[in-house]
Design a protein around this nucleic acid. Structure first.
Lengths: 216, 216
DNA sequence: TTTAACGTTTAGGATACCCTAAATATTAAA
DNA sequence: TTTAATATTTAGGGTATCCTAAACGTTAAA
């Protein structure tokens, strides 16, 4: 299907569209596309049976849509590994390039690329590459905003959006880091963590939704 | 610019649009797009200054258009090398895949890919990859249809169009083969060649236009 | 040189995506 | 529960790319 449609279902997937309704507003914000255009596209995605849509209520991915989204995300992550490991790109730059290449990658190229890369498990941002691993990763990890105060966790994945990557990097929060969630205060939207060497870091709960961790 | 426009200037380049006017008919046939659409697109390419167009007479690439076409062809050929050498694709299949990837490849990715591949000189079909080599290749090679009877030549390049590749492969004509042009008869559109082990091969002059050779 | 064949353009339309402005529905606050 | 804020949709447009049918130019054969 068209790159445009692929972008929409990818975003739906990333916003949890397998299990929850995703509002047009969220999609509109994420893709920086006007709300009316999103409404229009959702109706078009319903026609190809990738999405179930209830006006005013939002969209949910169908099984078909979910499969397709996963395939694109797999291609995206494979290119990220290639660009990072083989071509020597900076980790911050691979996302934008993969974003382009993913839409013109046949299944055949993806399979051969995966083999060439040695069947990597994760992309440079910690996202699972194998289709079934994507689900498992969802089951075993949670965002730091969902953690309970006092738990010790390892950062396993950062939602790969350029600005977020830059933000967490600047906060010295990287994949593989062990951190302890000291305090979560929803009243003031703040999470307090302790990282290596007892350094204290504070981030907002809303931004914490983009930082996935797993318990130790 | 858009993938569509890129396809048009690539075809103009391949049809000799740097030096001769290319008719809309030729473009229409090559891209399998209706003549009116080609007329329309040519006008649009004039607007971005990639093409000079005289109604009813045809198009010529501007310097700007030529540069752009070369960049895309370079990306195309780099991907072909990658797909063939690294991913193990069959030579017949690389063209179609490269056709897709070339449009979503940034200059940065192309440069790093070129370096990763060790700065290859030619794509698997014998096409030059470096921009200046592309011109040189034009100067030193000619199509077998332009050869004089009696000359001995080496096949250096086959225009990479799937059907043509298949055709020449079936005729046992491959890049690197030494052949002798025995006879060229324009009255019946036929070229007779002698290949290894004195095997005789006959092809039409029109198809010979897609087989580039260089003198020994 | 007149005409037939063929290439090209004009006219009129379709679809995919995108937009703004205005109307409408939903939800949260008063 | 009424209102105000916010999300969503409808209405009306715009551009890029494609198409067919019909009109028009060019060229080469008769």
């Amino acid at each position: 299907m068209s790159p445009t449609k692929e972008d929409y279902i990818k975003v739906l997937f990333e916003l949890g569209g397998r299990f929850n309704r995703v509002s047009n507003k969220e999609v509109s914000n994420r893709l920086d596309i006007s709300p009316p255009t999103v409404t229009e596209m959702m109706n078009s995605l319903v026609k190809v049976e990738w999405v179930e849509y209830t006006p005013y209520k939002g969209s949910i991915l169908t099984d078909k849509g979910t499969e397709y989204a996963k395939e694109i995300i797999r291609k995206h992550r494979l290119w990220e590994v290639f660009l990072f490991e083989k071509l020597g790109f900076d980790i911050e730059d691979v996302h934008a390039e993969a974003e382009l290449l993913e839409h013109t990658t046949s299944d055949d190229v993806a399979d051969k690329l995966e083999s060439y890369l040695g069947y990597p498990e994760y992309c440079p941002h910690g996202g699972a590459i194998k289709i079934d691993l994507m689900d498992m990763q969802e089951d075993y990890t949670f965002t730091i905003s969902e953690a309970k105060a006092g738990t010790e966790v390892v950062i396993s994945r950062i939602v790969d959006e350029e600005k977020l990557l830059k933000y967490f990097k600047n906060q010295h929060l990287n994949i593989g880091d062990r951190i302890t969630v000291t305090d979560i205060d929803s009243s003031i939207d703040l999470i307090t963590l302790t990282a290596e060497e007892d350094k204290e870091i504070q981030i907002s709960i809303s931004l914490g939704n983009y930082l996935f961790v797993e318990p130790i």
